[in-house]
């Protein structure tokens, strides 16, 4: 049974180059755990066929931390929850430049400035634009920004400033979103995603798995990601944060994480699929298996408020896997 499903998926994606249907993805999602390595192997083959062997590295920094008015139940930066994260204003430009240099030194090609906000106001936009100009002037990094919900004018200004990619995650399926966030809607996120593309930036639109969504809702999310048509999909796994409503949720099991990495690749064969937050605590010893389950990009080093493993470990892992590091942007 599982072999027939995998063969059909392989023919579709490798020979016919046609997308899998929602029913096919649901069937693959329901495969027995013993079939996950085979699923991962197919996803790796699809990734190589559609994207090539290159892996893109990215560093991120929280340019403005905490104090966010939104209530994303997974996030330690919401002002609505009593978390250990103390709000801090926009980083000094010297700190931004230092973080960018650190990113460049590890061989990354992407640097993302992330702000904990609903959306930027005039003052924040000015700070973001100055930071973008600084990073572009002092490094060879491609600059991405994640600053919440945008207006058309803001999206246009960011694109004009040379922001080549904008991150705005769907996080979860539309049918589950109301259990995660109540201060804005899934449709508002979707609208910003469309705006980003309309203004000529690459869309980076990620997911956060492990918040209590069902497998059917994950398959629903795969379809919704297709609808928004991102260039990059960061794959985050819930790392339960103290003080948040999801602070006591269980981690996704490592092999289950591999299953969904593979399914993301099979659903979105041409995207930059980036292993992102929560990977260390979720995958544990299976980091390399993640790389051979359809992943072709990594966030290296620390995250926004938590730490990652050392970039050197990741670079060594990629060398061992014979995966070259490089840029995958389509607009630069």
């Amino acid at each position: 049974m599982s072999r027939a499903l995998l063969d059909t998926a392989a023919t579709a994606l490798l020979d016919d180059r046609r997308p899998l249907t929602a029913d096919e993805l649901s069937s693959l999602a329901a495969l027995d755990e013993s079939a996950v390595p085979s699923l991962a192997a197919l996803a790796h083959e699809v990734r190589l066929a559609w994207c090539g062997p290159t892996v893109e590295l990215e560093g991120i920094v929280s340019a403005k931390t905490g104090g966010c008015p939104e209530d994303c139940h997974f996030c330690s930066q919401s002002a609505r929850f009593a978390t250990p994260v103390k709000a801090t204003p926009f980083l000094d430009m010297d700190e931004i430049a230092a973080a960018a240099r650190e990113t460049e030194e590890v061989g990354a090609s992407e640097f993302c400035l992330v702000l904990a906000v609903r959306g930027p106001d005039l003052r924040l936009m000015d700070q973001i634009l100055r930071a973008v100009a600084l990073v572009r002037a002092t490094t060879s990094l491609n600059v991405a920004v994640s600053a919440g919900i945008l207006s058309a004018d803001q999206a246009r200004a960011l694109a004009a400033a040379g922001v080549h990619r904008y991150n705005h995650n769907l996080e979860t399926a539309r049918s589950f979103f109301g259990s995660v966030v109540t201060t804005h809607t899934w449709d508002e996120r979707f609208a910003t995603c469309r705006l980003v593309r309309a203004e000529g930036m690459e869309l980076c639109c990620g997911v956060l798995l492990g918040m209590g969504e069902t497998p059917a809702q994950r398959v629903e999310l795969l379809g919704q990601l297709r609808d928004v048509d991102p260039v990059e999909v960061p794959v985050n796994f819930l790392n339960p944060r103290p003080g948040t409503p999801f602070g006591s949720r269980d981690l996704v099991e490592p092999l289950e994480a591999i299953r969904w990495i593979a399914l993301l690749r099979l659903a979105l064969p041409g995207v930059i699929l980036r292993l992102a937050g929560g990977r260390e605590v979720t995958l544990r010893e299976l980091q390399a298996l993640g790389m051979t389950a359809g992943i072709n990009a990594l966030i290296v080093g620390n995250y926004l408020t938590t730490l990652g493993r050392s970039p050197e470990e990741d670079v060594r892992m990629l060398a061992d896997l014979r995966m070259p590091v490089g840029a995958l942007s389509k607009v630069l």
Binding site: G59, I60, V61, S62, T65, P84, V85, K86, T88, L91, E95, A98, A99, E102, T103, V106, A108, N239, P242, E280, V281, V300, G301, N302, Y303, L304, T305, T306, L307, G308, P311
Partner: peptide, 28 residues
Amino acid sequence: SCRRTLDPPRYCPVCGRRLNVLVTPRRV
């Protein structure tokens, strides 16, 4: 024992105040 893997320090060990924490790709 409350401290989770890969979390930076968040409170002052002397007075228990919340700390200003800067996390960059390579530094804390």
